[in-house]
Nucleic acid binder design. Sequence first.
DNA 1: AATAAGCATATTGTCGACAATGTGATGTTT
DNA 2: AAACATCACATTGTCGACAATATGCTTATT
Lengths: 228, 228
Amino acid sequence: MNNLVSIKSATLSEDIAQQLSNAIVQGDIPQGSKISEPELAKQYGVSRGPLREAIVKLEGLGLVTRTANVGARVIQLNTQDMLDTFSMREALEGMAARLAATSMPRNEVNRLYALLDKHQAYLDDNQDEHYVQQGGNDDFHLRIIHASGNAKLVRLLTEELYAVIRMYRRHTADQRSDPRQALREHRAILDAIANHEGDLAELLMRRHISRASHLLKQAMELSSLASQ
Amino acid sequence: MNNLVSIKSATLSEDIAQQLSNAIVQGDIPQGSKISEPELAKQYGVSRGPLREAIVKLEGLGLVTRTANVGARVIQLNTQDMLDTFSMREALEGMAARLAATSMPRNEVNRLYALLDKHQAYLDDNQDEHYVQQGGNDDFHLRIIHASGNAKLVRLLTEELYAVIRMYRRHTADQRSDPRQALREHRAILDAIANHEGDLAELLMRRHISRASHLLKQAMELSSLASQ
DNA sequence: AATAAGCATATTGTCGACAATGTGATGTTT
DNA sequence: AAACATCACATTGTCGACAATATGCTTATT
């Protein structure tokens, strides 16, 4: 019964929430599908108590919607919601870049330049195939967010919104073309931060995300994944 | 057992979450105090099941923090967290104002001008005492947020962040002085929106919130409520 | 007397069972 | 045959009880 990856956490509910979140983001539980409490409880080998707690958490993350006396459903990605989410990202990560420009320590700036060099080398070696940054420490955006020094902002972006954002990345086959362009934009943002130009850093970050949003929109409208 | 205000909702858990949220925002449950599940369950006349669900929701709203095997505690307001929260507000409501400038229908613009006139009249009649806008339909900021037309933004600001924001307003005795100045700023923002000047609307909204943040900071540093 | 170990108690985490609600099928009526 | 009512079933909501963990006190030891 106990499922494959069981990262022993302090409490069952946390474990289940983590696993369910991953399962949804990666599409193992398909979009729009119903979440059956008895079924999942049996599948994960726990009772319905902790499972329900996990579902409530997922609702807070916006990964499922719940209706009283009916149950929970996995969200259905669509273009409008994506655009809405990315508008929020634009505002929030723009603010993060602005803050980072005044508070990022010099050595972290250097580490980020090194990271971008690494990304560059990867593109050179893998004929421009997109770098797989699955939310780890190699994710440029996460590093900027953390450098903002705003704990609330970090929590919101990395714990509450990131699951959905990763879902959009994942399910559009990440075909937002031209990773070299994205890399150039990252470098420009970092330059602005290194020079403590908060206004410019915010502007560049917003353009960068706005552009990604446009590309994603085109991809979703062409792809059957969006309307399916 | 059953507590005073019981707005019969579809489910007990929703009810309790709502009541607990209000109790925390209004200070009936003091900051930093421990949330005892058995005690509250008895107090509200329910079992621990729905109560726990409510607590999990409150954790998602950032009103309490939970530690495994230890329990939940009401958050403790402090200046740094307030500044962090208001930076996010600045970014998000700035974006909302920008979006509202392009999507707010003419008649809603007119209704908002009427609302500001009403606020003006209130100040004239009540020797500048601050208008009590307890998150209702008379709240200028809420109206702007809804006018953004961004459903995700609305949910985030009005359901997830607003409880904490109201808490800051409440516990600083709302002594952010000069309501007439605030009203002037509201009017300037609305003018920009009416003229479809998104850039300006965003700029003004950000300044407006930034200013409120500074005032709140001063109030908190002077007041014992902040460090108490 | 101060510190540490151990124990008693209370609280949280988890479970299984019952109650309430929604859902789909069956059958009846027009 | 179509629409509606009724009923059986499955799922969600709620409850009380047990297990696991933390906390505070007592006691023993140095």
